[in-house]
Design a protein around this nucleic acid. Structure first.
Length: 450
RNA sequence: UCCGCAGUAGCUCAGCUGGUUAGAGCAUCUGACUGUUAAUCAGAGGGUCCGGGGUUCAAGUCCCUGCUGCGGAGCCA
């Protein structure tokens, strides 16, 4: 590949340069010496390769430059690429020259044994570690897969605003900010309402960007700032919506399997579990799920007025919590879509099932291996009066939603969409045990630094 | 917000029913070694035991309080 901007040989494609002398620009990941040998593990952002310097082969200056290197010193190393059986990457560099840019002193992160607090405080440096590096590369592949999937299926990207005048869903808490003389503005918690307007203009659209929730959630599945992709399709019903969600998730997983085997190996991911993620996924109605829970004795902890907890059968009408979702998913080796939730636990914009008005045409996709909910979606309410009724029922401002109601006045059509949480998806695919590891700089209830 | 747990060397931790000079491994520095990859071996330096108050002849250890962090719940993607 040739380009006008600067490019150089990268570790990633060193095997194309066997026998040649190349210069790598990077940082020292690790260094050990053994007598007249100096072993330097060099990382250049694309990968890591071991460089071997045999002192008698180079000048004293070069040898002492190599010996002076410390962890994370910046350095350019020139040498001959050689096939090497003993190397995990299959190649090594026989060093002929070393140019030191900076000697790093007291780099805080050593190759092992650190606590979470320490690593989070050094997130800006932690990203250099092999595991974090692998996760970030997978994240990048997942984003590309998502965009390729939609771009290749007739969707148009329609960005939605981050400043919004009101809540999309009354339930969640919003981050508030002063917006000049126009009063309060909020950071968006979903681009969906704008995606609906966009779908009426362009047919099939998706919005992809950061969203914000001021929920005081402190779990390994929550961030206050996270990325969400939200497709919205005119003339789609709930079944079409579920079909699309399946196709998307299958595509993402298969893309990662294809393009990131090295990263998955670094992460120790069991790829056979990902290979199993093929359509069709499982599907189950909420009502069937409740029946399953009660048949399998999965109880609900309920607090009584005196403060004690008792275990009760799961009542129809209650939303599932993490324990119920986990129990349900234990039987499945690939994602499961649960659909037709009780209207009362779902958002006002979701259409009621004409066959049973107690349930909404909503669906959630749960990922296996304890990963939990990665998608939430629905067919939208397309009837003006029904939607207005729900807005008033939820005590939302009719005026704030006037533009949204307009969509039901001027050529309303059945339409549906969903939101896929990027970080939850990457967490599942990489097998990361906490969502904070799958976004470069996580924002959580008790952490905003670095 | 609620429930539970923790804070001791740069890092990860041990430190018993309170007892006199607070330990280990890793990291760092010095030296040895032509195949290390969590190298090994020999040596060295490194401490406000989270802050404040209290009990006691004596507190890293017990009590109160504050701070910080972790795990989980609810809510959700």
């Amino acid at each position: 590949m040739s380009s006008r901007y600067k490019s150089f040989v990268s570790v990633e494609n060193l095997d194309a340069h066997v026998g040649q002398e190349v210069t790598l620009n990077g940082w020292v990941y690790d260094k050990t010496e053994k007598g007249k040998l100096v072993f330097i593990k060099l990382r250049d952002g694309s990968g890591t390769v071991q460089c071997v310097l045999f002192k008698p082969n180079v000048s004293e200056e070069i040898a002492s430059a190599a010996q002076s290197l410390t962890q994370e010193s910046s350095v350019s190393i020139t040498g001959t690429v050689r096939k090497e059986e003993r190397s995990p990457t299959g190649v090594e560099l026989d060093v002929t020259n070393v140019t030191v840019w900076q000697i790093s002193r007291d780099y805080p992160i050593s190759p092992k044994d650190h606590g979470v607090e320490f690593l989070m405080e050094h997130r800006h440096l932690w990203l250099r570690s092999a595991r974090q590096h692998a996760i970030m590369r997978v994240r990048s592949v997942v984003v590309k897969a998502i965009r390729d999937f939609f771009d290749g299926n007739g969707f148009r990207l329609m960005d939605s605003p981050i400043f919004t005048p009101n809540a999309c869903e009354g339930t969640s808490t919003l981050f508030e900010t002063q917006y000049f003389d126009l009063g309060k503005a909020y950071l968006t918690q979903s681009g969906q309402l704008y995606a609906e307007a966009s779908a009426m203009a362009l047919g099939k659209v998706y919005t992809f960007g950061p969203t914000f929730r001021a929920e005081k959630s402190k779990t390994r599945r929550h961030l206050t700032e996270f990325w969400m992709v939200e497709p919205e399709m005119a003339y789609f019903d709930l079944n079409d919506d579920m079909d699309l969600a399946e196709d998307l998730v299958e595509y993402i997983v298969q893309c990662v399997l294809k393009s990131s085997p090295k990263e998955l190996a670094v992460l120790g991911r069991d790829v056979s579990k990902l290979e199993a993620v093929r359509r069709p996924f499982y599907r189950m109605s909420y009502t069937e799920a409740v029946e399953w829970l009660n048949k399998n004795d999965v109880k609900l902890n309920r607090k009584q007025s005196d403060g004690t907890e008792i275990q009760v059968d799961f009542p129809w009408g209650e939303d599932f919590g993490a324990p119920q979702e986990e129990a349900l998913m234990q039987q499945f080796d690939k994602p499961c879509i649960i659909h037709r939730y009780p209207t009362e636990v779902k958002a006002f914009y979701m259409k009621r099932d004409p066959a049973d008005v107690k349930v909404a045409l909503a669906m959630d996709m749960l990922a296996p291996e304890g990963a939990g909910e990665i998608i939430g979606g629905s067919q939208r309410e397309d009837d003006h009066d029904a939607l207005l009724q729900r807005i008033l029922h939820e005590n939302l401002s009719q005026q704030d939603f006037q533009w949204y109601l307009d969509l039901r006045k001027y050529g309303s059509v059945p339409h549906a969409g969903f939101g896929l949480g990027l970080e939850r998806t990457v967490k599942w695919i990489t097998g990361a045990d906490h969502i904070r590891e799958v976004i470069p700089f996580p924002r959580m209830i008790y952490r905003i630094m670095p």
